[in-house]
Amino acid sequence: MRTPSKWEQKVSQNPEHSHWYVQRFRTMAADGADLAGEARLIDAMLPRGARVLDAGCGPGRVGAFLAGAGHEVVGVDVDQVLIEAARTDHPGPTWLVGDLAELDLPTAGVAEGFDVIVCAGNVMTFLATGTEVEVLRRFREHLNDGGRAVVGFGAGRGYEFETFLADAATAGLTVDTMFSTWDLRPFAPDSDFVVAVLSKG
């Protein structure tokens, strides 16, 4: 039996949480906030027309920027409300409801692999406990040869950086480099955020 993710548990406790989350980012966008930092990093890694998976895409801000930059984007999120918001606010990319621990896009009609998988917004810390290795393994399976997964999340959220790095290795991913921010500041032992660039081992 499938274990609900921590995000789904949060939503079950507060059914309005997803709607609040969508409105939060709509308001920030309307106020002119810079919401594309993660996407700019991903865009810099790619030639035009690359294939990108936005894993845990939420209401679509990262994937939408990348689609606007000329990439072919597929976004997946476990939350139907967030996917509906992405489809409404950012038509163009393929937005799909799905659990990253069960990611199998060929069965959803998405046959080709990806040049980059981006997993931003603390998504890794909202997974169901114990599914982290499986999620990372499925990322690896969906990467094209030479493809990379870029994962970012903060400290103090129940998923230690050391555990994440061990899980990535178990999943067959190699750490190419790590930063402490999406604007490429160096990672240090006392960093409170990690952005890891991973490739197939």
Rank of each mutant, 00 (worst) to 15 (best):
T174L: 07
G156E: 07
V78H: 01
N14E: 14
Y159G: 01
F164W: 09
G63C: 08
G152L: 03
F153H: 10
Q23D: 13
C119Y: 04
L96D: 11
C119R: 04
E134N: 12
T125N: 10
A166C: 09
G121L: 07
V135N: 05
W7S: 04
T177V: 14
D77H: 03
G154D: 03
P106L: 07
A128L: 00
V74H: 03
E162R: 13
A168F: 08
T131N: 02
E38F: 03
R185D: 15
R51S: 14
K10D: 02
E162I: 08
D79L: 01
R157L: 12
P93H: 07
P59S: 09
E134Q: 13
G60M: 05
H142V: 05
A128G: 14
D167H: 15
D89A: 10
L198V: 06
I42F: 08
T94G: 01
A149P: 13
R157M: 12
V22Y: 02
A30P: 02
A85I: 03
D43V: 05
L41G: 01
T174D: 13
E8R: 11
G201V: 10
L198E: 08
L127F: 15
L53V: 12
L53N: 12
M28A: 15
G92N: 11
D115K: 01
A29P: 00
G58R: 02
C119S: 14
G75P: 07
E132H: 14
G172V: 06
G58I: 03
G49A: 10
W20T: 04
Q80A: 15
G201Q: 14
E102I: 00
F114T: 04
G156C: 06
V52R: 03
T129F: 01
L53S: 12
C119D: 07
G32K: 02
R51F: 13
G109R: 04
A196F: 06
D89N: 11
E160S: 14
K6A: 12
A101Y: 00
V81T: 15
R51M: 11
A101I: 01
E162P: 02
G37M: 03
V76Q: 11
G146E: 10
G63M: 04
L136F: 07
S180Y: 03
R2C: 00
V151D: 08
G152N: 06
P93V: 04
H142S: 12
A44Q: 11
T174Q: 14
W95P: 04
A44I: 00
E162K: 13
V76N: 08
T177S: 11
F65W: 14
D145R: 10
F161Y: 10
G113P: 15
A171V: 11
L53T: 13
S12M: 05
F187D: 11
C119M: 08
T3F: 00
L165S: 12
L35V: 09
G109S: 06
G156P: 02
D176I: 14
G113F: 00
V118D: 01
V133K: 04
A55V: 09
I117R: 06
G154T: 00
E134I: 02
F193R: 15
V118T: 09
G58S: 09
I117D: 12
A29C: 00
A33N: 09
I83H: 06
E38R: 08
P186F: 10
D89G: 02
Q80F: 01
A55D: 12
Q23C: 00
V81N: 08
T94E: 11
F153W: 09
